[in-house]
Design a protein around this nucleic acid. Sequence first.
DNA 1: GACCAGGACCATT
DNA 2: AATGGTCATGGT
Length: 303
Amino acid sequence: MSVETSVESHSVANRISLPVRDYDLAATLSCGQAFRWDREGNSWLGVIDKHAVRLTQQGDEIIAQTATPQSDWTWLTYYLQTDVDLAAVLASFPIDAPMKSARVDCYGLRLLRQDPWECLASFILSSTKQIVQIRQIISLLCERYGNLAAGTSNAFTFPTAQRLAVLKESDLRSCKMGFRAPYLLAAAKAVNDGKLSLEKIARLDLPEARRRLVTLPGVGPKIADCVLLFAYGFPTAFPVDVWVIKALQRFYFRNRQIPIAKLREFSASYFGPNGGYAQQYLFHALRLSEGKAQPSKSLLVSS
DNA sequence: GACCAGGACCATT
DNA sequence: AATGGTCATGGT
């Protein structure tokens, strides 16, 4: 009869409780930075890398349950960024009326740290699509070309670049992604054959990292900044989409039509060292106010 | 049925 | 350097 080690850090379990402060899990998972989380009651079901996981927030703790036992939970705390001091981030925002309001409306909203390939592929699929449609496309893609997550019968990993690189454009088009299919295919091939190293991008400075990403067809400044912010954690990457355009023009340019390039230029200097976070607060606050995003309190009410 | 969606690209001015 | 059309598909 073997004796298991009793060292705490080597314990194996399929459940962990993470203490958190200033963390709104519902807002974080539903605000449109990640597309593969489904609410079930008060829990959220998703797949992080190869791990199927159920997340439940109870006050200042997040309980995670996995389909298979884990000895190392680093993948989870890294993804959730539970160690980030949110108060310090919020304190770096500009002191103005729209940001004060966004801080209140989005309090506890966090930036995740996602897998670069999944994030890149997902945002290639995002252009001129509503978030609900992006979720549908990605769900189809994962069902067809992902792998079953260990210990589950209906949760899929995100398909690797290697897997997608050998597909035909028509295979991807049948996942409802339309004109984005050749873009995704080209990105998968570039990553798979080493023409684009997603590992190297992490070590570049922001302008150089942008230059690398936008060499991919279908990847422009907005999608590049989404990947740089949501996957690589560049703190001043600032994706400017239709919602952010609307917010910036309304709050900072007296509702005037301003060229996107000028909005980016303004944002790069105005929002400070955590501009990316500020961007997500502007984005989510505006979508909340227009009824396009669910207030996290309502998400906690039993369905 | 028009309008628009976490855009990018290409052809015109 | 700015504008306008186009791309595919589906929600509202």
